[in-house]
Write a protein that binds this DNA or RNA. Structure first.
Lengths: 124, 124
DNA sequence: ATAAGACATCGGACTCTGTCAATATAGATG
DNA sequence: CATCTATATTGACAGAGTCCGATGTCTTAT
């Protein structure tokens, strides 16, 4: 099986485009990627993402996450929803509890998009 | 000259911490990194950053950037200021023109922080 | 000195976002 | 059924963000 270049996975919008520093992002591409960054660009959500991603198994229960902050339960629930709808967290209900899992591929794509160095111009 | 490991460059807050997926980010670390992401988490600024970073020499004149958007000159100026104050763009005046240059190290740090995969647990 | 061009800053209108209290939903248990 | 617990949704509000037109600043040219 080949991971086709043509596929535009809706769950991984950052995979849409070459790194920032290599080719100018189109308006459309920017419009796809910005929501991902916006979801991460908030201290509480950044910590939530990190808590989940660094948890054993890459997932964590909401109850653990809620206790890690000095914020109300609805607020944590809201932030988790934002991360989930951005495609950065998976959501799975098990009995009474809800587990959120990190979409590490999405994080990896985003990291590559942002961080990859500019290409050297070829000779000639 | 050595680029010391001890230095916490104020211009590169993303260099403060190990990747998201390896160790939970502290509140303080999240508070340092989030502004960088917030600066990028806007379609126009994302495109501006990409335009500058992918420009030959990694820098571009404001006049070029302003023409690339359907927005007023003050609006572009505002977005460039946000990116500059976040530490993602350098600013240099040459005669009448102002050139903005991409801080590729900051981008690289940010990319690593977000995108690096979780560490394998050691045996034992 | 006057004028013109490149860019920044200001002040406002309007929208978006983070937070909480209150309430709803859904599964487990008596 | 009633009740308890875990999580989500709603509604309200303050603060922050985006955008524009008007204006200010700095540099070069005449």
């Amino acid at each position: 099986m080949s991971k086709s270049l043509v596929v535009l996975s809706p769950a991984d919008p950052a995979a849409c485009c070459p790194p920032l520093s290599q080719v100018p992002l189109s308006a459309e591409q920017a419009g796809q990627v910005a929501p991902l960054l916006k979801a991460l660009a908030e201290p509480v959500r950044l910590r939530l993402m990190s808590l989940v991603a660094s948890h054993p198994g890459g997932e964590a229960c909401v109850c653990d996450l809620t206790n890690a902050f000095d914020l109300s339960q609805p607020t944590i629930s809201h932030h988790l929803k934002v991360l989930h709808e951005a495609g950065l967290l998976d959501r799975e209900k098990r009995g009474v509890w809800v587990y959120y899992g990190a979409r590490t591929e999405a994080l990896a794509s985003l990291g590559t998009l942002i961080g990859d160095p500019p290409q050297q111009p070829g000779p000639g």
